[in-house]
Amino acid sequence: MEKLTHLEALLFTAVLENCVDQLSILGHIMPVSHEGRTDISHTGSQEIKEILETEKELDINYQELVSARQGSGERVTCLPLKSTEHKQQLGKTEELKSTHHLSKRAMKQSVLSVEQLRKIQAARQYASDVITVTMKMMQESGTFNSLTEANEREKAKKSKFHDFLIREEEGKKEIKSLQKQLQDVKKETEIELQNRDAMIDYLKDELQEMKAKANTESSYTKKSTDLQVHQTQKKCSNAESVLDKEIQDLRRKTDEEIRIHMETENFLRQQHKKVEEKLQYWMAKYENDTDAKDEELDALKASKANNLERLQRLAEEVR
């Protein structure tokens, strides 16, 4: 880049100084509450706090006046007030109401103006700094590269901002597309839910029918089971009666058999006793008869021996 002549540099410097002065004047004509303060957000927060405190005080005064007005209205029957005092209270009440609304409105505007003034102040300060640096460079080297670089930076920022806007538009389009897809999905989901609800209603009807059928079958089964149980109980009762009768017959027969057995046993005992007595008699008789026969046998043996002896003597005599 070609250097500027000294005269051109002076001319451009004068123009730029005029711009700096105008920017300085612009900074001075800004609201007084923001002059001489570097932290605009802090100033805005201070104003908001003051407005809120003022609003609280106005609310308290307003409530006191309203309560005083109500109290004065209740005491009309006892102590009538003067019309002028009543009008003054009404005027104060209306004034406090209007002040209350104005304070709220001022607070909202203050919040907005703080942000706007902060942006304006930052832009003004940035332009003033760039022009000051450009003036210094023109005075020292006769060039305005800093201004060109600042311009390039702003172009780059604008290009980035433009790209950001393009991406934002694309994002919006994508969001719209996604919203449309979401709507389609919602519709499909609603249709699916409706189908599911219809299926649920159908299944509920089927369940009710199955419950009714099951209740009918259960009732029939219960009645049939009760009838079978009754019949079985009747059969068991009849069989039990027959068995009881058989048991009674068997007991009677058993008693009779026991009685017969006892009589037979007694009879046999008596017969056994008689047989024992006869056995003892016959044993005694046997012993007696045996002894008698033994004696007779001994006598016969002795007689035989005597006879043999006599026979031998006779035989010898005969010889």
Rank of each mutant, 00 (worst) to 15 (best):
S103L: 10
L52N: 09
F12M: 11
C19W: 15
H101G: 12
E95S: 06
L112D: 02
L7V: 04
G44W: 01
V242E: 14
E170D: 06
S159T: 00
F164T: 07
E154Q: 12
K136N: 13
E309R: 01
D21A: 11
K223W: 12
M30S: 02
S72I: 01
K187I: 12
K49P: 04
V76Q: 07
Y220K: 08
A315Q: 13
E170F: 06
N145T: 05
S24H: 09
F12G: 03
V66N: 09
K293H: 13
D129W: 08
K155G: 10
L311H: 06
I258D: 15
G36T: 01
L203P: 07
K234E: 11
A212K: 08
D163C: 13
A315R: 07
Q139P: 05
A198Y: 10
K49S: 13
D201G: 02
K108D: 10
M1W: 04
V32Y: 13
E149F: 09
D21W: 13
E2Q: 14
A127K: 02
K108Q: 08
Y62T: 00
M107T: 00
R75G: 01
L96Y: 03
Q116V: 03
L52S: 14
E257F: 15
T148S: 06
H86Y: 03
A299F: 10
R69M: 02
H261L: 15
G44I: 01
K136A: 15
R69G: 00
Q63C: 11
L311C: 06
T5L: 05
E85H: 05
K119M: 09
D197G: 10
E257L: 15
E50N: 07
T77L: 08
T38V: 05
C236M: 15
E217D: 14
N266R: 05
N61Y: 10
K273C: 09
G71N: 02
D163A: 14
S159F: 14
E95D: 04
K176V: 04
Q139E: 13
K172T: 00
L23D: 03
T264H: 14
L308Q: 10
G142C: 01
S103I: 00
E149A: 09
K49R: 09
G73N: 09
I200W: 11
L227S: 06
K293Q: 05
M1C: 03
S98K: 11
K180H: 08
R259P: 04
V114M: 11
A214M: 09
S24R: 04
N215Y: 11
V76A: 12
R269K: 08
K204A: 07
V275D: 12
M262Y: 03
S303Y: 09
D39G: 01
N215M: 12
R259D: 12
C19Q: 14
S67T: 01
I166T: 09
Y202V: 06
E287N: 02
